[in-house]
Design a protein around this nucleic acid. Sequence first.
RNA 1: GGCGCCUUGGUCAAGCGGUUAAGACUCCAGCCUCUCACGCUGGCUACAUGGGUUCGAAUCCCAUAGGCGUCACCA
Length: 483
Amino acid sequence: MTRVRTRFAPSPTGFMHIGNLRTALYAYLLAKSSGGDFILRIEDTDRARYVEGAVEFIEKTLEAAHIIPDEGPHHGGKFAPYVQSERMPIYKKYAEQLIESGHAYRCFCQQSEEQSDGEKKFGGYDRHCRDLSQAEIEKNLADGLPYVIRQKMPLAGETTFFDVLHGNITIANSELEDQVLLKRDGMPTYNFANVIDDHLMEVSHIIRGTEFITSTPKHVLLYQFFGWEPPTFIHPAPVMGKAADGTISKLSKRHGATSFNDLIQAGYLPEAITNYVALLGWSPKNSNQEIFSMDELIAAFSLEGLSKSPAVFDYDKLDWMSGEYFKRMSDEQFADSARSFVELDDNLSSKWTFLAGLLKTRVSKLSDIQPAIRFLIEKPPFDAELFVNKKNKITVEKSIEIITPALGAIEAIDDWTLETIGAAIAAFTTSTGLKVGTVMWPLRVGLSGQKVTPGGVNEILYLLGKKNSIARLNETLDNLRAL
RNA sequence: GGCGCCUUGGUCAAGCGGUUAAGACUCCAGCCUCUCACGCUGGCUACAUGGGUUCGAAUCCCAUAGGCGUCACCA
């Protein structure tokens, strides 16, 4: 059995779409699950679309996602170069070989040429250049006429190829246009370069989007023309997005964050993103496991688990998975990863690990943190409504009755630690003879200025510090009495 | 429009001729609880439609519908 070699072949657009990331992931998992190689190849044959620095961006993104190429532009490998624009002589050689064997021809048609008869027309050219005499060709060449090299498709019959997900797919050759192999500028088209490179680089399995299904017969014909063995094809369905109005379409900008980078910036962990994306179109056999480390994905991956229907990207589920990753981290780890997403004052930054521990189970992405802790830095405006709570039998009067003596108890705390605070508040609560909830409600609301807080009274007191806590409670008291 | 692919709850998704049609997310209810969250219990919701084949079909076949893709000197 030949060695499994897969490749990820993005064009350098400076953007790593989630769908691309998933394709890369599957290719990587397939290779690694069978001890093979994963290749990164840059398909930069469209000069107009080239984005400066995009290659480095792709490499950095893959690295962040823990998808590490064995061969690539900056990873080396015996089939270098791995950037198509650096392989032009190779494509030229094979294109000419095809002309000689009668499977390709020089086409001198202008791009905008119109065809008037009722014959089937392919992209502004007809097939008359197929029949040019050698003399005509020589003349055109001598005149310096620009030309492209086109693949000479069989006019009859059909081409069948096997796709792991879809089985045999057959397309009539009459549906196939004479594909341009070499463009006017000498660059190869995708449809040509990928065949040459995949063969030369000994790629065994091609994983790419379904948008390539209909052009695969062209590739298969090329393999036949050259007498090469075609690789195994796998065409997973695209990742879809759901718009606000419920319509479903290929995941794009209108659906929000759609690139790996967008998601990182929103504060999702790379591991969580990779994990979630892996499950969008793949599921493990004989298991319901959902949380996977990269090593576990490699161990569990198999082509049989791939789905052939499109999957809708679900931010709710990503949020859940993200939360699962947070919960499995230690407070220290979480505090560390979240640190760059928050701005803290000196007081809070000295208690950051503790605060982070409180937040860990309450956020689904790191960018949720800052809004959740703002009340600790700046107290929200007074709102009397907050001091009325039916369930805990709290009213404004009752709040004043509780906060006033509580202030005394708080002022009496010398050593400001979570333990001493907890003990003092517990003792105070007991002394009032009231239910815990009844006592805590006005205190928490009075301290935080909001109904919902991460952590309870003890934690907030600790985080705020003695001086600040007392100041806030006094202010609250003033406001309540003024009503 | 031609050609191709796809179709199990709102979403992901098991299932490969015989099941009470898994599991997860979301949502709802309850428990826990000083709020929220976590955790725990439980619940709602699905085989696109119509024909076959078969003792028996979500599973096989054929239509129909809908969705998606493709028809570039982009990938």
